[in-house]
Simulated assay, not measured.
Amino acid sequence: MESQSQQQDSPVYANYEDMRNSGPTSSTAYMINMGPGAVATEQPQQRKRSGLNQQYRGFKTSENEPRGCMEWLVTILSVLVFIITSPISIFICFKVVAEYERAIIFRLGRLSGGARGPGMFFILPCIDEYRKVDLRTVTFNVPQQEMLTKDSVTVTVDAVVYYRISDPLYAVIQVEDYSLSTRLLAATTLRNIVGTRNLSELLTEREILAHHMQATLDEATEPWGVMVERVEIKDVSLPVSMQRAMAAEAEAARDARAKVIAAEGEKKSATALKEASDVISSSPSALQLRYLQTLSSISAEKNSTIVFPLPMELLTPYLAKYAQLMPPPSTLPPVPEKSDAELINAAAAWPKTNL
């Protein structure tokens, strides 16, 4: 307990106390270098970051370096000004940050402790300045990027990026404008990822590409204290000519599949009809039963006309009986043949009518 209280009272530990308690979703593990008994504190439910995390922890600042005589003099004068002008100076020197904000204080240009907030904090007049950092999730649209895919197809892609500040101290000290830097990096990363993928992969594997882009951005922005939470690819636009070509290709593929399916159906139906005809030919009564079944199906539809197929086998005895009464073809009288001259004279003698 004593060692723990000594660690909490140490100035280095106090610098990072506010950042360590920045929230249950913080993804940063703060390393406090305190000799052989170094302590690493980490919030629960945090997401594991890359191995570069330890490399940027504990970067050197000038807050614990000894101050010069001029700095001490200016600090004393600032305190005297605060005392003389109080209670008016109280309204100027006390600041408040909201629950979702943190404040980084600089005293004479040097870092003065870690991130402060939420709540009220105190600054000295004339020598202290502070910067607020918003810890809420920020959403921005990546501008539409027109680029070539791996198979040389021009596409236009846009995405949405969600990020938040996981370390306010790094967001202020390590980068000039973390918001602008993250936006430019997102646009560049999107172009790089799309350029290494084919068009089919870009259209069918959006989720995989989004996760890849999110991991790449998160690793690059970690030294800035920025954590990229989510990346979504909104739309992939193709040229009109490419859309028509893909539509024609898909239509041709569907037509080919339809013809193949129809041909297979015809083949199966022909095989089934052949088997049925073999069964019917083996039993003459089966054909009559089929006729009766057809008649029942026709009559069920309330048709006014019923076509009744009459088997030729029923007419065979009657045809044989009347064939005996007919004379043979050789006994019929011959038809007289006329010559061409007789046909011409008959046509000339035909009466003519006035039309």
Score class of each variant (00 low, 15 high):
Asp158Phe: 11
Asp151Glu: 03
Glu251Arg: 05
Ser299Val: 14
Arg20His: 09
Asp128Gln: 00
Ala187Arg: 10
Ile84Leu: 13
Thr139Tyr: 13
Ser200Arg: 05
Gly51Leu: 08
Val194Phe: 02
Gln43Asp: 02
Asp340Arg: 09
Ala346Lys: 01
Thr154Cys: 05
Phe122Gly: 02
Gln214Trp: 05
Arg197Pro: 03
Ile92Gln: 12
Ala253Pro: 05
Asn33Thr: 11
Asp18Ile: 01
Leu238Asp: 07
Asn15Arg: 07
Lys60Val: 13
Glu2Thr: 02
Pro239Ile: 00
Thr149Arg: 05
Asn33Phe: 15
Gly225Ile: 06
Leu190Gln: 07
Ile105Ser: 00
Asn21Arg: 09
Val228Ser: 11
Glu101Cys: 01
Thr154Pro: 04
Pro333Met: 06
Trp72Glu: 13
Phe122Gln: 10
Ala263Glu: 14
Lys268Pro: 00
Ala320Arg: 12
Leu238Thr: 11
Val96Arg: 12
Arg290Ser: 10
Lys267Ala: 06
Ser269Val: 04
Asp134Met: 04
Arg244Cys: 00
Glu129Thr: 13
Thr28Asn: 07
Glu313Pro: 00
Asp177Asn: 13
Val260Leu: 14
Ala215Cys: 07
Met213Phe: 10
Val157Pro: 02
Cys126Gln: 06
Gly23Lys: 08
Ser241Val: 03
Lys60Leu: 12
Ser166His: 07
Gly265Tyr: 15
Lys234Glu: 05
Phe82Asp: 11
Leu273Ser: 09
Ser241Gly: 11
Phe91Gln: 04
Glu222Leu: 13
Glu337Gly: 08
Glu205Val: 04
Ile105Gly: 00
Ser277Arg: 03
Pro66Asp: 13
Arg206Pro: 02
Ala252Tyr: 02
Leu185Asp: 12
Ile76Lys: 05
Leu80Met: 11
Leu199Pro: 01
Glu229Arg: 01
Gln293Ala: 14
Leu287Gly: 07
Pro311Gly: 00
Thr196Asp: 08
Lys338Cys: 12
Glu219Lys: 02
Met19Val: 12
Leu287Met: 10
Pro87Glu: 08
Pro334Asn: 00
Glu205Pro: 02
Pro329Gln: 05
Met31His: 12
Tyr178Asn: 09
Arg254Tyr: 14
Arg164Thr: 08
Asn354Val: 08
Leu52Asp: 14
Thr61Ser: 11
